[in-house]
C-alpha cells in the first residue's frame, strides 16, 4: 500500500504541477457552470429538477475529463522513458496501476467537488435535499472511477498519450452506445447491452437522488475489471 501511495502522490503532484491539470480543472468548471446557467436555471423549475439536470450535465463533463486525466497515466511514462524506473523498483505491477488510478481519481474527485457551489446556489431560491446531493455526487464519483479505470487501461495499451486518449474515448463511446444497441437488439441481448451501458440505466437513478446497490456494484465491477486488465497489460510488457 505504501508504494501505491508513493506513486499516487508523485502522479498527483505532477498533475497539479503542470499546465494540463489546471486546464482540465478550468475547462470542467467553465463547462459545468455554463451548462448550469444555460439549462438548469432556465425558466421556473423545481429545485430537485434543477439538481437532477446539474448531475446529468456533470456526468458528461466528468466522463470527458476522466479520459483527459487518465490518458497520460502510463502512456506518458512510456513516452518519457520513465517506466523502467518503476519496473526496476521493488513494486508490484498492480501497485503501479493502482497508484496511477488513484492519482487520476483523486484529481477528478477534487475537480468534481469544486462544482459543489452550483447545487448550493439552488439553496438561495429553493430547497435542496442533502440526500439527493449526496446520491448525485456518489454517482459522479463512481462514474469517474469507472472512466478513470477505462482511461488507465487505454493508457496501458497505448504507446503515446494521444493514442491513449483516442482509444479511451472510443471505448467510452462504445460503453455509452451500448444503451442504443439495447433498444434495437432482441432479447436476451437487449438486456445485456442495457446492463452493460455506462450511463443510462446505472447513472440516471443517482442523478435523481436514488442509490441502488446494483448500480454501485456495476461501477465498482467495471472499475475492477478494467484495472485488472490494465495490470495484465503492464505485466505483459515485461515480456516484450
Amino acid at each position: 500500500m505504501r508504494n501505491v501511495v508513493l506513486i499516487a502522490r508523485r502522479e498527483l503532484l505532477a498533475m497539479v504541477g503542470t499546465m494540463a491539470g489546471w486546464v482540465i480543472l478550468a475547462a470542467v468548471l467553465a463547462v459545468d457552470g455554463l451548462l448550469f446557467n444555460s439549462f438548469a436555471l432556465e425558466g421556473i423549475r423545481r429545485s430537485a429538477e434543477v439538481l437532477t439536470r446539474f448531475f446529468y450535465f456533470s456526468s458528461g463533463t466528468t466522463m470527458v475529463a476522466a479520459i483527459f486525466v487518465s490518458m497520460r497515466l502510463l502512456a506518458e511514462e512510456r513516452q518519457a522513458g520513465t517506466l523502467p524506473l518503476l519496473y526496476a523498483s521493488p513494486v508490484q505491477d498492480v501497485d503501479i496501476v493502482l497508484g496511477k488510478f488513484f492519482a487520476g481519481l483523486a484529481f477528478l474527485c477534487g475537480v468534481t467537488l469544486l462544482t459543489a457551489y452550483m447545487p448550493l446556489l439552488i439553496l438561495i431560491h429553493g430547497k435542496v435535499s442533502f440526500g439527493h446531493l449526496a446520491a448525485g455526487y456518489l454517482g459522479l464519483l463512481l462514474l469517474a472511477s469507472a472512466c478513470v479505470a477505462l482511461g488507465t487501461f487505454a493508457s496501458a495499451l497505448a504507446r503515446t498519450q494521444i493514442v491513449a486518449g483516442i482509444l479511451g474515448g472510443a471505448m467510452l463511446v462504445g460503453l455509452l452506445v451500448a444503451w442504443q444497441l439495447s433498444r434495437v437488439a432482441e432479447p436476451p441481448f437487449a438486456g445485456f447491452f442495457a446492463a452493460l451501458a455506462l450511463h443510462n440505466l446505472h447513472f440516471v437513478p443517482f442523478q435523481s437522488g436514488v442509490v441502488h446497490l446494483r448500480d454501485v456494484a456495476y461501477y465498482l465491477l467495471v472499475t475492477w475489471v478494467l484495472l485488472f486488465a490494465a495490470t495484465r497489460v503492464v505485466e505483459a510488457r515485461r515480456w516484450r
Binding site: 508504494n3 508513493l6 506513486i7 508523485r10 503532484l13 505532477a14 504541477g17 503542470t18 518519457a80 522513458g81 520513465t82 517506466l83 523502467p84 524506473l85 518503476l86 526496476a88 523498483s89 521493488p90 513494486v91
Partner: peptide, 27 residues
C-alpha cells in the same frame, strides 16, 4: 540493484531533491 537505463528515467517537473527522495522511498 541500482539500474541506470540508456535514457535516464527522470521526471522533469520534480526538483532533483524531490526526485531522489521519491526514488529512495520507492526502493
Amino acid at each position: 540493484i541500482g539500474y541506470l537505463p540508456e535514457q535516464p528515467p527522470l521526471y522533469d517537473e520534480m526538483t532533483v531533491g524531490e526526485y531522489l527522495r521519491f526514488v529512495a522511498e520507492i526502493h
